Simulated scan of single mutants.
Amino acid sequence: MSQAPVTASNASNAANMIDPFGRMVDYLRVSVTDRCDFRCTYCMSENMTFLPKKDLLTLEELDRLCTIFIGKGVRRLRLTGGEPLVRKNIMQFINSLGRHLESGKLEELTITTNGSQLHRFSKDLFSAGMRRINVSLDTLDADKFKAITRWGDVNRVMQGIDAAQESGLKVKINAVALKGFNDDELPKMIEWAHGRDMDMTIIETMPMGEIDEDRTDQYLPLSKVRSNLSNQYTLEDIPFKTGGPARYVSIKETGGKLGFITPLTHNFCESCNRVRLTCTGTLYLCLGQDDAADLREPLRASEGNELTSNAIDEAIGRKPKGHDFIIDRNTKRPAVSRHMSVTGG
């Protein structure tokens, strides 16, 4: 007997998800895979052990879970990884999610990518209903890019950005600030991005997962970055928001917007509206906490969605107030043991 298709309207009758601190959860980040074709030094070990494929939810199961969340009030959905575009048949999943954009249940479907596969998928992403994407890019220098990603080719990423813009996608650049690596290059990157009509966001490195580098050597507080940029540019705070945690300024000299994501120097927890779903069906309530809920078991236990919906409600009911990230010489172990690629950023 075939199962009736899941729609946002029949996924749940609950109106909205409200956490214990009165914050409405309307933003879901979905890691469709923990695999990546790069090995960025601040994100992964070079010799990563990835999840067995048998542990991953099928694309149909991910679709069903996303649909349940949309029925419970999620209005923005971002696909992440690892690198989301390396998952086999990923466009099948993205095209299916597009139906929620057409119905108006979902306001926005976006993706964060390293750009390596954009030359292949940009037109398809636009056709599926995406209108903006984030590209993670920490340097414009080919040799430095190869060093930081270990396996990456910056020219291929540039081709992907070209293809994305040509297809009509609005591109935002995400750069992790790394002391002694790209701190001197950030002004050049900002001018390059704004010159191509791309906004840019700078992100503090986060203490997640065991890596081969010493994070105390990498960590660059964005308070210092902003102070340095203020000596060169006119920065004006603006109320612009995209649904995520970035605080934005406009730069008078370039005419573009620059975001700062500061999980350590100035955390953004007071306005947190998001939860994260992994490719194994684990729901993380906070990027910097290990508390989680298993949604795979209730999802597979019944053809109906009541068990899963109840599990989501229980989890949202214990969403923590915030994270406790810290980086210093005395705290060299990561704040959480899982790598960023598992949680999906």
Score class of each variant (00 low, 15 high):
M1F: 09
N13F: 04
N16P: 08
F21E: 10
F21D: 10
G22L: 13
S31P: 03
S31D: 01
D34Y: 02
D34S: 01
D34R: 05
D34K: 03
R35K: 12
C36W: 05
R39D: 10
R39T: 10
T41V: 13
Y42A: 05
M44G: 07
S45V: 15
E46F: 07
T49V: 11
D55S: 13
T58Y: 01
E60Q: 15
E60Y: 11
L62K: 03
R64H: 12
L65P: 02
I68K: 03
G73S: 10
R75A: 10
R76T: 07
I90R: 05
I90K: 04
R99F: 01
H100N: 06
L101W: 05
S103P: 06
G104D: 03
K105G: 03
E107F: 07
L109T: 01
L109N: 04
T110W: 02
I111D: 04
T112D: 09
G115T: 09
S116H: 13
L118C: 08
H119R: 14
F121M: 12
S122M: 04
D124C: 00
L125Q: 00
L125E: 10
N134W: 06
L137A: 00
D138H: 14
D138R: 13
D138M: 13
D153N: 15
N155Q: 15
R156I: 11
R156G: 03
G160V: 07
A164M: 05
K170D: 11
L178P: 10
N182P: 06
K188V: 00
I190K: 04
I190F: 04
I190V: 12
E191Y: 05
W192D: 09
A193I: 06
R196N: 15
D199E: 09
M200H: 04
M200Q: 04
T216A: 10
D217K: 13
P221M: 09
P221Y: 01
K224T: 15
N231H: 10
Q232D: 08
Q232I: 15
T234H: 13
T234N: 14
G243Q: 08
G244M: 12
R247G: 05
Y248G: 02
V249C: 06
G256Y: 08
L264C: 09
F268D: 00
E270D: 15
E270T: 11
S271L: 13
C272K: 01
C272N: 00
R274E: 00
C279N: 12
G281I: 11
C286A: 02
L287T: 02
L287H: 12
L295R: 00
R296Q: 11
P298H: 05
A301W: 06
G304Y: 14
L307M: 11
S309I: 04
S309T: 14
D313Y: 04
A315T: 07
I316V: 10
I316Y: 00
K321D: 14
K321H: 14
R329W: 11
R333F: 08
R333S: 14
R338C: 12
S341F: 08
